[in-house]
Nucleic acid binder design. Structure first.
Lengths: 134, 134
DNA sequence: GGGAGGTTAAGGAAAAGTGTTTAAATTTAC
DNA sequence: GTAAATTTAAACACTTTTCCTTAACCTCCC
């Protein structure tokens, strides 16, 4: 029944923003505070991220669990771990060391701080050697 | 902060389903009733739909409102209306009559019954002549 | 008829999400 | 530096979602 993730309020703000209006201008139009417009816009963008992540997850359904990057691990040690585990399963990882690190960081920027893993990251791999994170 | 739309429970059920387990089998594994497994799976699929719809909406941001298909309209009369309105805006619709009808029905199956529009459908068009519905 | 797999409905408790305000802090632009 | 624009945090009322149980219903197949 329910439509997409975005509320009417959120869509409204995104449309005005697309037109180039400032948060202040929008606040006046929809009769609320600029802080509130900010909150609504932020929530909207978060919802869009969540929608993307949700569809990303579907790929992991075709994938199997490979290993866990534990909190505190040095990011530079992740590739070796991943390559080793993939080999055990007879799978070839699609990414070289550099691409792998970039993919890790790009996929979940908030899970890494500098070279360190901030919270456990589950690694999944499919037959094509593509990696997904959960 | 929050990850995707799916809860851990929902992901768990989807993974077991992917493996081919029945709802009853999953119910035993996760210690609940099969009715509950059904509910969780249904909620998961609904969330996936919502994620798709959310990203669809982003396209309408680049699009402008073209016209409204009003409740009760004959679906076969929609293409003419749409072509006429697009022409007024100097835009060329990307779809021929047949593809257009199919796209309309595929995009929102629940909004049509046979040849009839069940509830208002807003039509948006972008510069490429692509159509989106809201 | 009876079993297996799946769906639906009603109801409840806990958790999460939304819109809002107010106030403070940060970033960006001139 | 200052003013405008944006972001953040805390708190609140409110609504929705989630997971769960129980009990019933449907469909296919033997």
């Amino acid at each position: 029944m329910k439509q997409g993730l975005l509320t009417d309020r959120q869509k409204e703000v995104l449309r005005y923003r697309k037109k180039g209006l400032t948060q202040q201008q929008i606040a006046e139009i929809i009769h609320t505070s600029k802080a509130n417009v900010c909150t609504i816009e932020k929530a909207a963008l978060e919802n869009i991220s969540r929608a993307r992540e949700t569809l990303e997850f579907l790929y992991t359904l075709d994938a199997v669990h490979l290993c866990t990057l534990q909190s505190g691990l040095d990011l530079l040690k992740a590739p070796e771990l991943i390559y080793t585990e993939a080999e055990k399963k007879g799978l070839k990882v699609k990414y070289d060391t550099i691409s792998l690190i970039n993919r890790l960081r790009d996929a979940n920027p908030e899970r890494f701080r500098g070279r360190q893993v901030r919270e456990d990251v589950e690694i999944y791999i499919n037959k094509d050697g593509d990696l997904y994170f959960g």
